[in-house]
């Protein structure tokens, strides 16, 4: 970068002008795109503050009346829809499945990246193939397996479901591990570390971006999935996650009554994820670029 900047010192006047014009054009484009991208979000936030709570359709964007009732009633009117309970459910499921998924994924990725054993290639190919089946049909079977061991409609079942497929998501992490120099392992091996030791003491510490990336994606999944929860929980509302609960608020029966509260709930879900994303953006970027594309 620095060499290029030095070069630019000598740019002619006209080129400088042209550059200013391009930059101005870029600013304008970016601003327009930003507006386009943020408009639905802004509408969501405004709807969540709307005082006209009985109206689903409004032909205006800015509410006539502002209120926080939509937010407060999510926490006070819990007889039918217990938002706080859903929120805690989701948090619990997200934390547990995030921990389990991260470990499973990294274990598998490390194995495929570093250990050589007879079935390695075969396992990798099988994983690749399994990942290509559309997931819906398997849900009935999963439900009945969980029911057979007495776990249907419980949060434990949900944690299992979210972390059960972890062994398929090794791809990005393996790509990342592949880029960690093998010389590190060798040196450690000479120092007498077992492979277990190498995994914990050498590979993991040098791969924090991918750990963060894996954890982040695993943590977010329970907050946004509404299909698996429906299959597992069915009519057990107490064990719903926020995503499923919110989705219920906008079904045919509840929509007109709960629409503004749905918006408020959605904002409350988006806040922690946005915060996490902004905080971890750096890791996310280096994780995904390091892993997915072997850059």
């Amino acid at each position: 970068m620095s060499t290029r900047e030095i070069e630019h010192v000598g740019l002619s006047h006209s080129m400088k002008r042209r550059k200013q014009i391009t930059n101005a054009a870029i600013y304008v484009t970016l601003s327009l795109l930003c507006i386009f991208w943020l408009l639905p979000i802004a509408w969501l936030v405004l709807s969540s503050l709307r005082g006209e709570t009985k109206e689903m359709y409004t032909s205006y964007i800015i509410p006539k009346q502002f209120t926080l009732w939509n937010y407060t009633s999510l926490f006070t009117d819990t007889k039918l829809f217990s938002f706080p309970r859903w929120y805690l459910n989701t948090l619990l499921v997200a934390v547990c499945s995030c921990a389990i998924t991260t470990f499973l994924t990294l274990m598998v990725a490390y194995t495929y990246s570093r250990l050589r054993f007879k079935w390695r290639k075969r396992f990798m190919n099988i994983s690749l193939v399994l990942g290509m089946f559309p997931g819906f049909m398997s849900m009935i079977a999963i439900y009945h397996f969980l029911k057979a061991i007495g776990l249907n409609q419980s949060l434990v079942a949900l944690i299992i479901v979210y972390s059960g497929g972890a062994a398929l998501g090794y791809y990005v992490a393996k790509g990342f591990f592949d880029t960690v120099p093998k010389a590190l392992d060798e040196a450690a091996s000479i120092d007498g570390l077992t492979r277990n030791g190498i995994f914990w003491k050498i590979i993991l510490p040098t791969s924090m971006p991918i750990v963060a990336y894996t954890a982040l994606t695993a943590f977010i999944a329970p907050w946004v999935d509404f299909i698996f929860v429906s299959v597992i929980m069915k009519d057990n509302y107490a064990n719903y996650t926020v995503a499923r609960g919110l989705y219920m608020m906008i079904d045919r029966e509840h929509m007109s009554e709960y629409y503004t509260r749905f918006c408020a709930g959605a904002v409350l879900v988006a806040i922690p994820i946005t915060a996490l994303f902004i905080k971890m953006q750096k890791y996310y970027v280096s994780g995904v670029t390091g892993g997915a594309v072997k850059g």
């Binding site: 039918l80 439900y143 299959v231 045919r252």
Partner: peptide, 14 residues
Amino acid sequence: VVGEPDARARYQED
């Protein structure tokens, strides 16, 4: 809460 129109579909799930 399962509305009358959804009863059949929800019933057959399990």
